[in-house]
Nucleic acid binder design. Structure first.
Lengths: 318, 318
DNA sequence: GCCATTCATGTTAGCGATATCATTACCATG
DNA sequence: CATGGTAATGATATCGCTAACATGAATGGC
């Protein structure tokens, strides 16, 4: 017991004993076994998180935010990515719950029925991120993808653009891409602009290369397009490169805007107008909320919603 | 015991019992507790991995390779990133070993003494990646960063370039960046070329923005530079943008090459010459080796080395 | 009809930590 | 000196599972 106490930094161990313990630990190469500890104490020290992809820098920023915040409390992250598939998410939730995480962070608000049931039965706090779910499971840290895209369209409309195109993925899986497209359409309608030209291209995440190809398609179908909005900065960059290869001047011949405020949008030439969505902050806040609920189980913060900022960043490409 | 067997897909459970069990599990919402299971069976189902950063797509590709390969075997990844710090690595190794992983994958060959000691005492297979350590702990899946960079210099030299510059980070922490710079220098010396112009800029990972600034420094210090090689494609892209802002023609006025074959190098305009290093494959192979050793503990593959391919990809920027 | 064999299920004893309660040693106080 | 209080340490049971062995039931071969 004194060893256990010493390793937990309890002040109920005398200095002498403490030193003897650490000396012995060092000599023996003893390493505490946390699975035994958590079996006994009912606290695993795990938090689970599932993101669509870790290659896409937006979500990996969120993962960084989560990790950084958890680290302060000594919690460990169990991270999985599901390639935008709710079915893979379901089996990952199942696998992770077997590790008895003390909380779980999900991306988006769309989950299979079984996923929802498992999460409700688990009796741990859940945070859904990156979205405003119609039927939240528990807590939410996110923003409206539709509103964000709509804001971008409206901002550009005030600059005089009228003929808009939208480049996104085939919208089966990427629910956030879906909502951005819906926000695009509704803003167009609201402003009474000419019908938006929508190109759906490939499975998420839409790559630079796919953005380039989609831009080719926009230019050949609707050569008079004034501005092309892309589902992410990566595809926007691909689109930009395609225009440059064709000798088009940006934004004079055609303007381009992206989404997500990736590093590349701020660094390429011309710089790309984008929507900043505080990815790192989403992760940090989600972890923060989880930790709060874990540490104060007496008043759980069920159904609380944190709305994160969205902000259009206008640059030279529009 | 029958429940335990049924959940492990043992064929020692009759169809009837199996169905009864799953029905009850469904009704009760029972979820297996793996920490209890691993305490008893001495198998946790964890593999630990530590990378320098998860924002950098090269390392997140490696993490993807690891995850994809582990998933086939039902192993779960415990992932951490250390911001290129061997000290943070040390405390992460300590934290992870408390979870009793069945194997561990590290990036690079440089670790603190205590890290090495802990790993040796842990009695689990270790794979070092992305490098050829002078003193390998156990198994290695990697390549020589110096050779790769040297190969790039030599390839460019055959095209007639003679005045080389190198853009990298201040080389305290990023050991792989270090080695690339050394490979650059040694190739220059070997070929009898004019002394390389080295700009060290910022802490790793060198961003696009830093690449741009470093390029500015190259151009003002040595305006007659013929080719600038960058420690990564991200900084190469930043450098490229800086040149374009200054109205320089690439590669006529100055050529640019990067390292890592990021998506952006293949997609920007002009496309950037780079060195491909099979990041995903490194992850896949490292996990594969670990799994082999875990599954065949009778003949451990200590000190085995897998050399991954490096390949210069010449594009329009040189 | 008996024993050997196979298949399915049950029993028991831990795995290595911590929660909880018990004990001891020591000191201060009236 | 007895009493009570505090600080440090110890003893025991338990967390939920699985390894290992034991048992029972069904089958088949001679």
């Amino acid at each position: 017991m004194s060893v256990s106490r010493a390793l937990k930094n309890s002040d109920l161990v005398s200095q002498v004993t403490r030193e003897r313990i650490f000396k012995a630990i060092d000599e023996l190469g003893y390493v505490l076994d946390l699975s035994a500890g958590s079996l006994s104490s009912k606290r695993t020290g795990f938090v689970a998180a599932i993101v669509p992809s870790i290659n896409n820098s937006n979500f990996s920023d969120t993962a960084r935010g989560i990790t950084d915040e958890l680290e302060k409390t000594g919690l460990q992250l169990l991270l999985a990515y599901n390639d935008y598939s709710a079915e893979r998410e379901e089996s990952q939730i199942e696998a992770m719950l077997r590790r008895r995480p003390e909380g779980i962070i999900l991306t988006g608000g769309i989950h299979t029925d079984r996923s929802r049931r498992m999460l409700e039965n688990a009796g741990i706090p859940v945070v859904e991120t990156w979205d405003l779910p119609a039927k939240p499971i528990d807590q939410v840290v996110g923003f409206s993808n539709a509103d964000a895209m709509s804001l971008l369209v409206k901002t550009l409309a005030t600059k005089g653009y009228r003929k808009f195109a939208y480049i996104g993925g085939t919208t089966e899986r990427d629910t956030r891409g879906n909502q951005r497209r819906a926000g695009f359409q509704s803003a167009i309608a609201e402003l009474g602009l000419p019908e938006g030209r929508v190109v759906s291209f490939g499975v998420p995440p839409i790559s630079m290369e796919q953005g380039a190809q989609a831009m080719g398609s926009v230019l050949s179908q609707w050569p008079d397009t004034e501005v092309a909005i892309c589902v992410s900065d990566l595809s926007a960059f691909g689109a930009l490169m395609e225009c440059q290869r064709r000798g088009l001047k940006i934004p004079k011949d055609i303007a381009i805007a992206g989404f997500g405020n990736y590093e590349i949008a701020a660094c390429c030439h011309p710089r790309i107008t984008s929507v900043d969505i505080e990815c790192y902050e989403i992760g940090r806040l989600a972890a923060r909320k989880l930790i709060n609920t874990i540490q104060n189980p007496e008043h759980p913060s069920r159904n609380e919603l944190v709305l994160t900022n969205i902000r259009v960043i206008e640059r030279e490409s529009t």
